[in-house]
Design a binder for these strands. Structure first.
Length: 455
RNA sequence: GCUCCGAUGGUGUAGCACGGCCAAGCAUACCGGCCUUUCAAGCCGGCGACUCGGGUCCAAAUCCCGGUCGGAGCACCA
């Protein structure tokens, strides 16, 4: 089995599917998983991704047995190309791009198609030694000019690139197209099974010509349906543009759906695995469900998410008439091992409550400060009422935070920020916590802020 | 336009290769109740689907034909 990403950036949610599906197959049935970095197009390579991709995979707990880098195997591709030329199955076309396209669309042979193998070989050697300019020539695999799908008729296997390759520099001038290098590598890596998206259906057919000409055994192919991930920006080129022009702070900007960003928000690798295994390998296109994805993540995260009181948009109030006020509450109601938090507030303390709630509390309305006491609103202040637990079901219960609370802000994936106060003991909490009546947040203690995960 | 693929509740799926055990299972969401000093978690109950039309058959979500709808690919990206 293999994972074959192009090194144009780190992995995102979409990639996690193919990684996990392949990995899961290998883990269940045995075998070997290659990570094959497909860097045969020097124009869209991001040097960092050579290490970011393996790191992402490691985070996902995908076990890669061996890493193969295509740009280091160019001689192999050239060697196999020569064999095809000798067999008369590949030729060097010197038509313009437009002419070549025209011939194909009309099922016609281009003038170079029937040249002798020796002539082609000569042209090929010139091509790889850099004697041609970009766009002048290409190496073409003969298929069937009458194939109903024009893209499958005589497809291009090598083209000239003049850019400097980030890894190999200016060593090579002719680079294989994905369909050629993939066929050669799938054979030499002795792959038995290939799992990939059904956007590759045509490629599978193109590649099969190589297997047939070379008399190689084809792997078994499985094509899963495409998933549309709502609200996600996954096009690496667009993300890169956004990073360059300052729209995004980097690959881990939490508005993005790169694995880096999702990790920062507190998503767990197990969530990815469970979600993708659960959605299976059907050929149906489907809609990615954040609803289900988040609920799986909540399952993993909730058990150790300490509860905290965060007060967005805080209003500062004095509890008039409250003497010797104390509060004690567990960090996790269902998990006593997580400990508890205790506050001694003293007499007539000041506290913060959420501005949004304060706005909707009527004059003379009674409400509860959670784990503290009941109060009644009077004009623009509150007075102590009692500490009975009797009407808990009837009145609303608000989270609050003491006067010595810290400033804290939560960044949300939609780009907005909630500013507020957080209870002092938050500094004892690490990782993902649940802000009561607010949602799950991954804490960044050093910077006194958090990243919103989900409700 | 051409080629290929697909169609189960709001969403994600199981079942379809070998028709009957499917008056369609699970999850999530939603609604109601219990519990609870969070609008979290947990427990109980409820809601809700086989794209349409034909055909084969004792019997069709499952097989065949047609329509409709959706998706992907269509040349020097991977």
């Amino acid at each position: 089995m293999r994972l074959a990403p192009s090194p144009s950036g780190p992995l995102h949610v979409g990639h996690s599917r193919m990684a996990i599906l392949n990995d899961e197959y290998v883990k269940r049935y045995g075998g070997k998983l290659f990570l094959r970095i497909e860097d045969t197009n020097p124009s869209n390579i991001d040097l960092d991704s050579y290490h970011l991709i393996p790191e992402d995979l490691e985070w996902l707990d995908v076990k890669v047995h061996e890493i193969v880098i295509q740009s280091k195997r160019m001689d192999l591709y050239y060697k196999e190309a020569r064999r095809l030329i000798e067999m008369g199955k590949m030729y060097i076309c010197e038509c313009s791009q437009a002419d070549f396209k025209n011939y194909k669309l009309n099922s016609m042979a281009c003038p170079h198609r029937e040249r002798a193998p020796e002539t082609n070989m000569e042209a090929f050697e010139k091509m790889i030694s850099g004697a041609f300019r970009k766009g002048d020539v290409s190496a073409v695999v003969k298929t069937d000019l009458n194939h109903p799908n024009p893209s499958i008729r005589d497809w291009i296997a090598f083209r000239v690139k003049e850019e400097t390759h980030p890894l190999t520099g200016r060593t090579y001038f002719a680079y294989p197209m994905m369909n050629f290098s993939v066929a050669v590598d799938d054979h030499y890596l002795e792959l038995t099974h290939v799992i990939r998206g059904k956007d590759h259906l045509n490629n599978t057919e193109k590649q099969s010509y190589i297997f047939t000409y070379m008399k190689w055994i084809k792997p078994h192919y499985y094509h899963y349906g495409l998933v549309h991930i709502p609200g996600a920006l996954l096009k690496t080129s667009l993300i890169k543009k956004g990073i360059r022009d300052g729209t995004y702070s980097g690959w881990s900007d939490i508005r993005l759906q790169t694995l880096l960003a999702m990790k920062k928000r507190g998503y767990r690798p197990d969530t990815f695995r469970k979600y993708w295994v659960n959605s299976g390998m059907r050929e149906i296109d489907s809609e990615f469900s954040w609803e289900i994805f988040n609920s799986i993540n909540k399952e993993f995260v909730d058990q150790h998410a300490k509860r905290l009181w965060f007060v967005p948009d805080p209003v500062r109030l004095r509890i008039v008439g409250g003497w010797d006020m104390n509060s004690k509450a567990p960090f996790h109601p269902g998990n006593p091992d997580e400990g508890e938090r205790v506050y001694h507030l003293g007499a007539e303390p000041e506290i913060y409550i959420p501005g949004k709630d304060w706005l909707t509390i009527a004059d003379k309305e009674k409400f509860r400060l959670k784990d503290l006491c009941n109060v009644i609103r009077k004009d623009n202040g509150i007075i102590y009422a009692d500490n009975s637990h009797e009407d808990l079901k009837k009145i609303r219960i608000l989270q609050w935070s003491p006067a010595d609370s810290q400033d804290f802000s939560v960044e949300r994936p939609d780009g907005t920020v909630d500013n507020g106060k957080i209870e002092p003991l938050f500094s004892k909490v690490k990782g993902v916590s649940q802000f009561e009546r607010y949602g799950y947040v991954n804490l960044d203690l050093e910077r006194k802020k958090g990243y919103f995960l989900h409700k």
